[in-house]
C-alpha cells in the first residue's frame, strides 16, 4: 500500500471529493493564495500547502480565497451549506475560532434543532491545533473541548495519515457540521494510505494495541505519545491498551468502557488545557458508567493550566511526554514483575 504523509492524505481527500461531487467547494484565507496579487496563482495552496493544486484543477468558482474575515467566510460556508453546497472552510489556526464562533455554535450547530429537523448543514471547518511549533499562546491551542461541548457539532481529531484521509472524506460527505482539527506536528508523519476513496466512520475509536493492565486513551499527537509510553510500560511488565477515539463528538465511550472493564485502570492523555477538557469528560463518564470496574484512580495527563509558552524550553516542558504517561500509569496500576 502506498505511503503518504498526513498532509498528502488531507490534500488527496480534497481532490477526490471535489472530483466526485461538484457541490464541494473550498474557501479560506490563502487556500489558493495570491488572489489579486500580480505573482503566481495558487501561490500558497493553504497556509501549510494542504490545498495546493486545487485552484489549478477546480478554478476560482470552487476554490475561493477570502479576505481576512473569519466571521464572514465561516458564516458564508455555513449559509452555503444550507443552500446545497458542501463547503470546506479552512480557518487556518483553530485559535481564530474566537472571531467566528457565533457562526459555528449559534448558527451551524443549532439550525437542525431550532428548525425542527428541516435544515441540513453539511459544512466542514478545517483548522490546525496543537503546540510544538514555537508559535506561542495564540497559535498553539487545542481548543477542541470548546466545540465538543456544543450539541449539533461533530469534532474530528485524526492522529495518522490513514485516518486523516478517511475521516476528512467522511466529514465532507457528512450532513452535519464538522470541525476537523489537524495537529501541526502530524503533517509530516507518514503512513499507509490507499489511493482509493474510503471513509472512516465517526464515533468509532481506533484500538491501536491491546493489553490487559491499563487503558490509555489519547487524541491527535498524543496518540504517538501514548504508544511510546506503552512500549516503555512493556519493559516494566505493564501491558497497555491504547485507544484513539478519533472523534470527540460523537465519542465512542463504549469501546473505552469495555476496555476499562477488562483492565480496571484508565489513563487519559489530552493536549488541551486541563480544566473541562476531553480527559475530564472521559474520566467523568467512565466513573459514571463503570466505577465498579475501576481498580485504581483515573489519571489524566495534560499540560499545566497555562497558556502555551513561547520559549522552546518552556514549550517542551508544557507538552505531555511519554514519561508523564508512564508515571501516571504507575500511579494507578500496582507494580508488576517483568513478564507477568
Amino acid at each position: 500500500m502506498p505511503k503518504k504523509t498526513f498532509k498528502q492524505a488531507i490534500t488527496e481527500a480534497h481532490f477526490l471529493e471535489m472530483r466526485r461531487d461538484p457541490r464541494v467547494i473550498v474557501m479560506g484565507e490563502d487556500v489558493a493564495g495570491g488572489q489579486g496579487a500580480s505573482g503566481e496563482a495558487d501561490a500558497w495552496g493553504g497556509s501549510e500547502g494542504a490545498t495546493k493544486g486545487l485552484y489549478t484543477e477546480f478554478g476560482p468558482s470552487r476554490v475561493l480565497d477570502t479576505p481576512l474575515t473569519e466571521s464572514a467566510f465561516i458564516g458564508a460556508a455555513v449559509g452555503a451549506a444550507t443552500q446545497g453546497l458542501r463547503p470546506v472552510a479552512d480557518l487556518m489556526f483553530f485559535d481564530f475560532i474566537g472571531v467566528c464562533f457565533d457562526q459555528l455554535y449559534n448558527q451551524a450547530a443549532k439550525f437542525r434543532y431550532m428548525f425542527g429537523g428541516k435544515a441540513v448543514t453539511p459544512v466542514v471547518v478545517r483548522a490546525m491545533i496543537g503546540a510544538g511549533f514555537r508559535a506561542a499562546a495564540q497559535h498553539s491551542q487545542c481548543l477542541y473541548p470548546i466545540v465538543t461541548h456544543i450539541p449539533g457539532l461533530k469534532v474530528v481529531i485524526p492522529s495518522n495519515p490513514y485516518d486523516a484521509k478517511g475521516l476528512l472524506i467522511q466529514a465532507i460527505r457528512d450532513d452535519d457540521p464538522v470541525i476537523f482539527l489537524e495537529h501541526k506536528l502530524l503533517y509530516g508523519v507518514t503512513g499507509e494510505v490507499p489511493d482509493d476513496s474510503y471513509t472512516v466512520p465517526f464515533g468509532e475509536a481506533n484500538v491501536l494495541r491491546e493489553g490487559k493492565d491499563v487503558t490509555i486513551v489519547a487524541l491527535g499527537l498524543m496518540v504517538q505519545v501514548a504508544m511510546d509510553a506503552a512500549k516503555e510500560l512493556d519493559t516494566l511488565g505493564i501491558k497497555a491498551t491504547v485507544i484513539d477515539p478519533r472523534t470527540t463528538s460523537p465519542l465512542d465511550l463504549e469501546t473505552i468502557v469495555e476496555s476499562v472493564e477488562e483492565t480496571g485502570h484508565l489513563v487519559i492523555v489530552d493536549e488541551s488545557s486541563p480544566r473541562c477538557n476531553i480527559a475530564t469528560d472521559i474520566a467523568a463518564q467512565v466513573a459514571d458508567q463503570a466505577f465498579h470496574a475501576l481498580r485504581g484512580p483515573i489519571k489524566m495527563v495534560t499540560p499545566p493550566h497555562t497558556p502555551v509558552p513561547f520559549s522552546p524550553v518552556l514549550e517542551d516542558l508544557y507538552i505531555p511526554r511519554a514519561e508523564h504517561v508512564v508515571t501516571a500509569v504507575q500511579a494507578t496500576v500496582p507494580a508488576k514483575k517483568k513478564g507477568n
Binding site: L64, S71, A72, F73, I74, G75, A76, A77, V78, G79, A80, A81, T82, Q83, L85, P87, Q103, Q107
Partner: peptide
Amino acid sequence: PLICGAAL
C-alpha cells in the same frame, strides 16, 4: 454572513 453563503 449566512446570506453571503446563500448568495454564494
